[in-house]
Write a protein that binds this DNA or RNA. Structure first.
Lengths: 190, 190
DNA sequence: GGACGAACTTGACATGTGACAAGTTTACGG
DNA sequence: CCGTAAACTTGTCACATGTCAAGTTCGTCC
């Protein structure tokens, strides 16, 4: 058995979440993937583990990391920040259903909490790279360090906010991305 | 049986959440309240129903609605917005554990989703009262209606953001409130 | 070709949520 | 004092998550 059913399980999960939203049981996933329920536990340990793996999988498929790193190469620090944030927000809107499930699972599952924490830290590091450059250009608000500005802008642009806005205003993903980008920029610059 | 055990169940829930966080089963709650598990279902219908009732209960106890309405009485629209938002944020930090549980429950429980939605609408109306006045004073950013500004600032000041920042930065509740207030204000004004 | 190990299956069990049915207690109005 | 209705109990069931144990089926290495 050289081929693992892991990718098949991930595919099945995505299909079912796309179809049914959060109401997806692991038994359904297993059935859709054509494996036993236990196989899911073998590969992913828990529901949260499956969601974490799914997010990572989507990250890689979208090449989001490279895209965001490329955004940071811009010379103008403001443009670098804008492109970075906009890139993240557009992607955030896409993964929102899965990310929200993970965010919710975090409440009761310590493993999910840790996974979310790790992911947050990574992204915050990206935001920080952008805010450090804004700081060097003397553009951050008084009393705001690059680190604090990174936390602040990251929190403002996090998945729950994107979700909330999408529901509230029925804005397009693009409109949400544009509005939040400008909001984050004004929030941390003078 | 003139006295209902409803308040007792709410009290027990609060106690247990304060002690154990989100890992609280309804059986534990019932036991702590000295009633049967079914009694909890009689009064609140579901786990989500219990959380909704608990949040409403805390709202009333804190008199948050009156406090926020009072903030809106300020003459200066900027000060009214600041006081309103700061008032909300300080309270949000207090109810954060319960509110986060409700937010998470929303993913799988339609009743929780609706309850959250209702609550959001109420608060957004408050934000809107503040942004309308900013709009009349010509202080909103170009292309931003009072309604959009309300959604935006409300999303930026929502419970998950408060939670994220508190975790990220280990800022005090007050510091989170101050930073987010200024962030929201800059985000919607020119 | 036979032993070994990884991937996977079947089956069982513990715990939590939520629904349902059939009782019991208690206050209260007639 | 009796009947009724609300509040509550006990007991049971379906279903989801997560864990454990004992198989089976492969490919692979010697």
């Amino acid at each position: 058995m050289s081929s693992s059913s892991r990718p098949e399980i991930l595919r099945a999960t995505r299909t079912l979440i796309a179809k049914n939203g959060a109401q997806v049981s692991l038994a359904e996933v297993a059935s859709e993937a054509g494996v036993s329920r236990q196989a899911v536990y073998m590969h992913f340990g828990s529901r949260a583990g499956l969601l974490v793996a799914l997010v990572r999988n989507m990250d890689e498929e979208a090449g989001i990391r490279q895209k965001l790193e490329r955004a940071l190469l811009r010379e103008d620090p403001v443009e670098a920040f804008r492109q970075f944030v906009k890139g993240w927000l557009r992607y955030a809107a896409e993964i929102q259903p899965v990310a929200s499930m993970l965010f919710a699972a975090r409440e009761i599952d310590p493993a999910a909490a840790k996974a979310w924490e790790d992911r947050s830290r990574e992204l915050r590091a990206g935001f920080r790279a952008a805010t450090v450059r804004l700081g060097k250009a003397g553009m951050l608000r008084d009393g705001l360090s690059a680190t604090s500005a990174a936390s602040l802008s990251w929190a403002i642009c996090s998945v729950p906010v994107v979700e909330q806005l999408a529901l509230d205003q029925e804005w397009s993903k693009d409109r949400v991305a544009r509005q939040l980008t400008e909001a984050a920029l004004s929030a941390i610059t003078g």
